[in-house]
Each structure stands twice: as C-alpha cells, then as structure tokens.
C-alpha cells in the first residue's frame, strides 16, 4: 500500500458553489517527493489541507472520495490522531505560531512536548533544526517579533523537529532569501533520502524540477497531469494553465536542445549542460 492514496477526492468550501478539488486520484510512495504546481487558486493549499485532515475536520463543506495517509482514512480520524505522523507547514508562517510559548526555542519544543519526547531528545532536536534553518540566533526572541522570513524558518523548523513520516510543505520558501530557500530544498532532499514522504507546493519551477520525483499539475481543482518533471515541463500547453517551465527549459526550447529521440527538454542546469555538450 502506498503512503498516501487519494481516490476521487472532491471538495467544496461551505457556502460556495465551486468545486475547489475536483476528482483527484493519485498515490505517493514512501520516500518520494511529490511536487504540486498550479496557478493561483488552482486548489493547492486546499489539497494540502485535505491531506492533513483540516479538510474536512476543520473546514466543513461538501466532501467526497477518500484520502488515506499511512493507512489511516483521513475522514474517519480526528486531527489529533492524523497529526501523529503528518506535518504541515502552512503557506503563511504566521498561521503556524501557536501563541502558547514566549520564545522561538519553546515554540519549537511545543510539538515535541505533545509527542512526549524525553527532555534530552527535545534539546537535541530543537538545536539541530534551529541551526539547520539558521534561526538559532533568534532562539530567545518572541516568535511574533521576527521578520517574515525568520518566522517562516521557525515555522519549518517547528514542524521538521517533529520528524513526521509525511511532510507537507505549502510554499515553504515564499519569504526566504535565495540562499535560505536553496538550503531548505537541500534539507528536503536529505529527508526524502532518509525515507520521509514529502508533498511540496511551489511556484519556483526550477526547484520543483530539481527536487521533485514526480509533479502533479493542478488547474481549477482538476488533476491535469501527474508525471516526471521532464514530461510536465516539456508540455507545449503549460501557459494554458498559467505556468511557465524553469528558465533552463525555456532556453533549451529556444535553442532546440532536447533529449535525443524524444520530445523532452532538460529541466535542470546539469542536464542542459550535458545535452548541450553532446550536441
């Protein structure tokens, strides 16, 4: 059985008429990184909520189909049970702060306390993840007195520290500086190697191309395509879905650099270079 299984998922927010998620079907294997792309309002965040159980437990509305994560049918279990092995990093880091703690250090500890970790383990993990996200220096500040990017880093650290089996990241680098966001993607790569299953929503197509194993293309709540980054970004009709491929792919298209014998274009700089040199 796959780690995540989504069958005929449909969802509509309360008091609205439009289906925000319209008949989604896919599964994700353990240790896989699934990228989710789509234009604004495509339904990406809502899908994240549906995987983590906020839909339908918190956001009611009309719900159909079935989502199974780690063998648990999301609709049939309380959020408290679901979050035991799923972590969700929100699109807006402000939403992640519990307000229950006075310092960044304790904020990260909060989830670990609820998991019942022993104290030594808590300290080890908190220090590890605060350093990994370069916010160790603000560990004694109040979480609400941080810059936007610092808060986003703390939000990521607080979820990572819980080391969930399934990690859902909704535009986790939207407010990070370039090197910070690069570091986050490298962390993601490490974690998938370690067997964590990751769902990554991103507008940065070059990062999706480099770090996602497969890509789910959403448009108006529908699943347009689910395939490898090469296949997705070589599609000629991406603009119809409000998207552009990574810059390297655009350049490869302009220069006619392709995988020999296919209609596929390179999506990473390394591949671009290799194919260019072969040519």
């Amino acid at each position: 059985m796959s780690t995540i299984e989504v069958e005929n998922l449909k969802y509509r927010y309360p008091d609205t008429t439009k289906l925000v998620l319209n008949d989604l079907n896919f599964s994700v294997e353990k240790g896989e990184c699934l990228g989710i792309i789509g234009e604004n309002t495509a339904g990406k965040s809502t899908l994240c909520y549906a995987l983590a159980g906020l839909v339908p437990h918190f956001y009611k509305g009309a719900y159909g189909g079935k989502v199974t994560v780690n063998g648990l049918v999301v609709r049939d279990h309380e959020i408290a049970t679901i979050v035991e092995n799923i972590g969700l990093v929100f699109e807006n880091p402000f939403s992640q702060m519990t307000g229950a703690k006075q310092t960044v250090y304790e904020e990260v500890a909060f989830g670990l306390e609820n998991m019942g970790l022993v104290r030594q383990e808590m300290h080890t993990r908190i220090e590890k993840y605060l350093k990994l996200l370069a916010v160790y220096s603000v560990k004694d500040k109040n979480p609400f007195d941080l810059s936007g990017g610092q808060m986003q880093r703390v939000a990521i650290a607080s979820v990572l520290a819980m080391e969930p089996e399934v990690l859902i990241l909704d535009e986790p680098t939207s407010q990070l500086d370039p090197q910070g966001s690069q570091e986050v993607f490298e962390v993601i790569e490490e974690l998938t190697k370690g067997g964590m299953t990751i769902i990554l929503v991103e507008h940065k197509m070059d990062k999706i191309a480099q770090y996602a194993d497969r890509v789910l293309l959403l448009h108006e709540g529908r699943q347009v395509d689910l395939d490898t980054p090469e296949n997705i970004f070589s599609r000629g009709d991406l603009t119809d879905f409000g998207l552009t491929p990574p810059v390297v792919t655009t350049i490869a298209k302009a220069l006619g650099i392709q995988y020999p014998g296919t209609k596929l274009y390179p999506v990473t700089i390394e591949e671009f270079k290799r194919l260019g040199e072969d040519k």
Binding site: D177, P178, Q179, V247, V248, L255, F272, G276
Partner: peptide
C-alpha cells in the same frame, strides 16, 4: 549577503561563460 545572481547568469556560469546576464532573451 545570502543572495544569488539571476537564473540566467547562473546558467551562463554553469556553461562556463564569465559574462553575467539579467534577461532571458539576452542569454538566448
């Protein structure tokens, strides 16, 4: 300063060119 050059420059450098670029069209 924890920043980076635009993608087009990064691509150019990866291909072994010294020159920096700021527009896609320029690099193409």
């Amino acid at each position: 300063a924890f920043l980076e050059q635009p993608s087009v420059s990064q691509i150019a450098h990866a291909l072994g060119f010294e020159k920096s670029f700021i527009h896609e069209a320029e690099l193409i």
